[in-house]
């Protein structure tokens, strides 16, 4: 009989800055052992039998706390969750004993298709019920508290009946899951949907924040020439996002914070400098209120 997976017993990520682990940096991380709070990996990249990915993650996990971040579970999907995928997640959790497991408020699969993007949901009672059922299923089968990430979106559904932060609050209330507060996503979505980021934050259950993400965005314009921000994880963190992050920390106290970079990946040194900047803010953030 196989043992049920469970998150590491030191169950929280330390309230420090961490980095997404990039294959480009595997060797340098082991050689230089940078002073970081944790590493985060995309779970799906490690759903392979063997080879360098597991070799390096195994060694890096011996030195650092780990956050396992899923991008493929399609929690908002119309259909049932993919059980094979849940089993693959359980196997990774068993193997690497991460301090945290997180996923997105989005859908990415439909029928047999996987679309490899985080797609938007209609915020209504039907979706709310389905998302809560899926999160209940994830938490009971993985035996852990999921952190749910707020999305970056570019459009909305006309028949949505709930605001996004209200929807998220209700999911967290009903399922007991935590919040992965992506501050860049807050900023991107608020600009794209003409909302006030501070009001958006006010409406979120920030007390449930288990991790924060910071990233850079790309900028485009829509058909009216209005700012259209794209969450591409391909640039340094914007000053406005840093500013919003300071506001968040004043409300949450220090929370584990990931510097997220998935495209146009710079040297490890550049990312460590951003992590140091986050650490500085975390140090002055005081205790959790």
């Amino acid at each position: 009989m196989s043992k049920a997976p469970s998150l590491a017993t030191d169950t929280r990520l330390p309230p420090r800055a961490g980095l997404g682990l990039k294959t480009e940096h595997f060797r340098e991380v082991l050689q230089t052992r940078p002073d970081l709070g944790f590493f985060e990996v995309h779970a799906e990249n490690y759903m392979v039998a063997g080879g360098p990915f597991h070799h390096f993650l195994g060694r890096i996990r011996e030195q650092y706390p780990l956050s396992l971040h899923g991008v493929g579970l399609s929690i908002g999907g119309e259909g049932p969750l993919d059980n094979a995928h849940l089993q693959r997640l359980a196997a990774l959790i068993e193997r690497y004993q991460p301090q945290s497991f997180s996923e997105h408020l989005a859908w990415s699969s439909h029928g047999p298709m996987f679309l490899n993007d985080l797609l938007p949901l209609a915020y209504d009672e039907t979706t709310l019920k389905r998302v809560c059922e899926h999160i209940d299923q994830v938490q009971s089968s993985l035996k852990c508290t999921l952190l749910l990430e707020n999305p970056a979106t570019y459009l909305a559904f006309e028949d949505s009946t709930l605001d996004e932060p209200d929807f998220i609050s209700e999911v967290i209330r009903r399922t007991g899951c935590g919040l992965l507060l992506d501050v860049n996503n807050v900023y991107v979505s608020c600009i794209n949907h003409c909302r006030d980021p501070l009001a958006y934050l006010d409406a979120l259950p920030l007390h449930a924040t288990g991790e924060i993400h910071l990233a850079g965005f790309a900028e485009d314009a829509d058909s009216l020439g209005e700012r259209l921000l794209i969450d591409d994880h391909g640039a340094p963190i914007d000053n406005e996002v840093w500013r919003l992050y300071r506001t968040v920390l004043a409300r949450t106290g220090p929370v584990a914070t990931l510097i997220e970079r998935d495209n146009r990946i710079p040297t490890l040194g550049v990312l460590l400098a951003e992590a140091a900047q986050a650490d500085q803010l975390l140090n002055t953030a005081g205790g959790r209120p």
Binding site: Y154, L155, A156, F157, N192, H193, C194, S223, L224
Partner: peptide, 21 residues
């Protein structure tokens, strides 16, 4: 059934998802 708060054509916003995928 898609909408955009700026009043822009949803097509230009949908294009972001299409391009991402």
């Amino acid at each position: 059934g898609l909408t955009c708060a700026t009043g822009a054509d949803p097509e230009s916003r949908f294009a972001v998802y299409r391009n991402n995928v």
